[in-house]
Design a binder for these strands. Structure first.
Lengths: 237, 237
DNA sequence: CGGTTGCTTGAGATCCATCAATAGGAGTGG
DNA sequence: CCACTCCTATTGATGGATCTCAAGCAACCG
């Protein structure tokens, strides 16, 4: 099943017909190489990227060369709110791994939302989840320590990947370099490295060969004050 | 004119009729005392708060007593996305000053959006602006120094307050304590104090008696790498 | 007026950044 | 297949930005 639909089924009860309509939106796909830009700041945007495979990120490059990643985009993620297109792109969209994505037409997705209340509800649920993650990131960057931020991020990714079936045995693929992690969490690579070691030493995780294993999910959640509620503004039926 | 309409007119061309429909949404008002909670985490929400007068904020209280403010809400601001209500409130909503607000019904606002394309466009534009601010806050907390964060916030507030007519002579009312500022920017009050002094010493701002004056807007913007584009995803017609 | 709240300042501690160097692995070309 | 390069991970040492603790002061308020 398409990861987009797989995810949206957590937000509302979609009929077979709804699911087909959603599939139609992501009919054709494109590919982006790892580390390429899918949308660059300053572009005029004419479609909504929808990630099908691989990891992408929204990021800003600052004047002094620093980078801040403002969102990690996983399979099934719609990269922008569905209701409107910005006049131009302010944050760039980059592929972290090789990415397969669809270019969803704004008109088509809005038509789909109008045609079915369940689809509309699912899309709003998805949007609410995105804003909840943005807000939670602010909380992390503002008030949590480096190790807590890392643990919290791993918990969030665990929930999100689980929704699209990409977790097995408490483990998932984490194709991020330590530099990427640093730019997500507002830290330096050196400090990411040391914080990772701390989580390893505590026996909470393993991270080798781009695969993350969470040994004690509940302990990791407690340690990083993670509460999954923010990701599920509406419970699955 | 109602600040909500005043703001939305920046996002789309509203007819007289549209404006009346929007006014109808905010027909009745309530009051909240300074420092009271308008919505508390854990509540079930049944309406969307819309700020009419005064300043409010969305915030999270952490386990160890720390507070992170995730958004400042000004007159004309709708406190949540208009399309859906969360199952329950995850972030609390607090009044920073005495606040006058309306309780907008979800059904009514969605009906208004369906009845007029211009209203729908305006509401989406508003939502896009909110998410842009969330993302920009992440950039600030992740990659900007304390003084830059402060300057950037003052620039952002300048633009937002100007949209609703609350700026005169490069000055506006800033009813925040240094503790509030610290909780917005992820810093300590002591450091806020020192960073404010730095901005004052540079001659960029004055802040006395809850009034902020920006002496050199362009210099302040350049200093804090502020680019107003993120707040206006769609140019005013 | 005493109490509270917010602002200011100093001193010391801590977290995290920066700089620098090493090492391993993956890809590339000869 | 080897030499080379680049990228990533790792580690140590040092410095800096910011926090915490503590105290004093001003303004407001019942």
């Amino acid at each position: 099943m398409h990861p987009f639909i797989r995810k949206l089924r957590h937000g509302s009860c979609l009929t077979q017909h709804d699911q087909e309509a959603l599939s139609g939106l992501a009919h054709t796909t494109r590919r982006a190489r790892a580390r390429s830009e899918i949308l660059s700041a300053g572009d005029a945007s004419s479609f909504l990227p929808l990630i099908v495979e691989g990891w992408a990120c929204r990021f800003r490059l600052l004047e002094d060369g620093k980078r801040q990643i403002t969102a990690l985009l996983l399979p099934g993620d719609l990269c922008e709110p569905y209701g409107v297109l910005s006049r131009f792109i302010y944050s760039s969209l980059g592929a972290l791994t090789p990415v397969v994505f669809s270019r969803v037409s704004l008109e088509a997705i809005r038509a789909a939302a109008k045609s079915s209340a369940a689809i509309e509800e699912a899309l709003w649920w998805d949007l609410l989840g995105s804003t909840a993650m943005d807000r939670e990131r602010v909380v992390s960057l503002g008030r949590r320590s480096a190790v807590e931020r890392l643990g919290h991020l791993f918990c969030e990714l665990h929930v999100r990947l689980q929704m699209v079936g990409l977790v097995s045995n408490h483990a998932y693929e984490l194709p991020l370099t330590q530099t990427d992690l640093a730019d997500v969490l507002g830290l330096s690579t050196v400090h990411i490295n040391r914080s990772l070691q701390e989580l390893r030493t505590m026996g909470l995780i393993s991270l080798r060969a781009r695969a993350l294993t969470i040994h004690h999910l509940e302990r990791l959640q407690a340690f990083s004050y993670f509460d999954a509620d923010y990701l599920q503004p509406r419970a699955r039926a």
